[in-house]
């Protein structure tokens, strides 16, 4: 259903910096393990692609996994914590901690290009600059219905071309 003329820009500098940190980390295997942890409200996205997974570091207890909320009140964060813990325990890790950090704040620029592609494939217009394109037909003749949709991170739109309602993952800079 994804329109072929709908372009998604290249990786952002913010995402590139995250990726570079991941690539030089000696915890590459942990990052790979955590790729299996999805956002409970956007199951097409991993917490890595969404930018919620910030960094895996050494800590006194062994391992420290730093995560950040998308929006301050995001209720998914508690579930994400549990899923990270389950994932690590399942792989035999015991000594780890999960820390929440708000500084620097999360923005949509931290998301990967893969996240944007997956959102669109899942019927959600991704947070890219420019006009909001309908994820079903690719039209940019779209109209805002409500500033908030099913979750705090999305707005509700309607396509004027194919008349489908859809969610738009809001750009947060």
């Amino acid at each position: 259903m994804t329109s072929s003329n709908a372009t998604i820009p290249l990786e952002t500098p913010e995402y590139a910096a995250r990726l570079a940190r991941r690539q030089v980390s000696r915890h590459g295997a942990i990052y790979a393990l955590l790729d299996a942890v999805r956002d409970p409200e956007l199951p097409e996205l991993s917490i890595w692609d969404l930018g919620v997974l910030r960094e895996v570091r050494d800590s006194e207890r062994g391992l420290s996994v730093a995560i950040t909320p998308t929006y301050s009140g995001c209720p998914a964060l508690a579930t994400i914590r549990e899923n990270i813990a389950t994932c690590l325990r399942g792989a035999g890790w015991q000594g780890f901690e999960i820390v929440e950090e708000v500084r620097p704040p999360w923005t949509t620029a931290l998301m990967s290009r893969a996240a944007c592609t997956q959102l669109r494939a899942g019927g959600i217009a991704p947070p890219v600059s420019g006009s909001v394109r309908c994820p079903a037909c690719g039209s940019d003749e779209t109209v805002l219905v409500s500033e908030f949709a099913s979750t705090a991170c999305k707005a509700h739109y309607r396509c004027r071309t194919c008349l489908e309602p859809f969610d738009h993952f809001k750009v947060l800079t």
Partner: peptide
């Protein structure tokens, strides 16, 4: 959703 932002 706005309420959630303030609660957060």
């Amino acid at each position: 959703n706005t309420a959630l932002d303030f609660l957060g």
